[in-house]
Amino acid sequence: MSEKVLEVKNLKVEFNTDRGVATAVNGVNFDVYKGKTIGIVGESGSGKSVSALSIMRLIPNPPGRISGGEILFNGENLLNIPMEDMRRIRGNKIAMIFQEPMTSLNPVFTVGNQIEEVLELHQSHLSPKDRREKAVDMLRLVGIPSPEKRVTEYPHQMSGGMRQRVMIAMALSCEPDILIADEPTTALDVTIQAQILELMNKLQKELGMGIIMITHDLGVVAETCDDVAVMYCGQIVEHADVKTLFNHPQHPYTKGLIESIPSFDSTSGKSKEKLATIEGMVPSLFDLPEGCNFQDRCAYATEECRSKEPSLRPIASEHEVSCFNPLK
């Protein structure tokens, strides 16, 4: 295994709402390795984006609050350092791209300005001319045609795919150790999705950063990830390398997710079978059942699942699952 750059330990995030305290992330552990991609998969509200934002300490507070755990970056707990030090890490050592390329860039500044702003902040030794050159280089790196021209354009003059490329250029301009990608392709057309993922894979090989890929799309996971953590109701329910997870899913929820990917048999030209779905809905964070959170939607639930809460335990090497009755 390569060098570990980030360790998330027992992370807990709470949100104060009118209905009470919601624990959006409840005891999550995962590691990020240099040059590797870890995927965090789950439905909406499973806590995957909140986990990612916590690493950057970007949880809006109030109402959110990181109430426990540690985020160790090069051995230093990011949750304990002063905000000023955190700002030196943001955009420099740990960078992030978001789901909404259309609104994530500031509409009244040119894309060049916005990239140069990061450089000005974290690489202050560069002259304005060097910064402009570097911005053009970054745009070229992310595959934007005629970057010398486009560097002076405004976000509204670009398509969604181009804007996401600009976001990636901005995020990678200080060569961060970690890139957090929060559903980077969800808002894009399928063909553009593939291009962006391919670009991220290529840049990872060139720059060697660790990537945290937040997604609800298992197709994206298969395309990009080395490791996968499946989240449900703020907890990781299964954690394995990508091959094992797809070939031998142990948690019924993971299996359900994989089965609900539409598949197509190219020899017969028909869909293989009726699309499988996971029955029921994600329980409300205010109304979690006693025992396993997945019990009401699980075909294998037993008496034990309804009374005791399962915890993540190793089932094989590099494979953990939080289930009393893992699949065979």
Partner: peptide
């Protein structure tokens, strides 16, 4: 509460720069 403000924070900008530069111009 716009997305570009979150992006500005993720770049490492301080709140003052975000308010007086990014927010004010918009």
């Amino acid at each position: 509460y716009q997305d570009y403000v979150r992006t500005a924070r993720s770049k490492g900008l301080g709140e003052k720069v975000i308010l007086f530069k990014h927010v004010l111009k918009n």
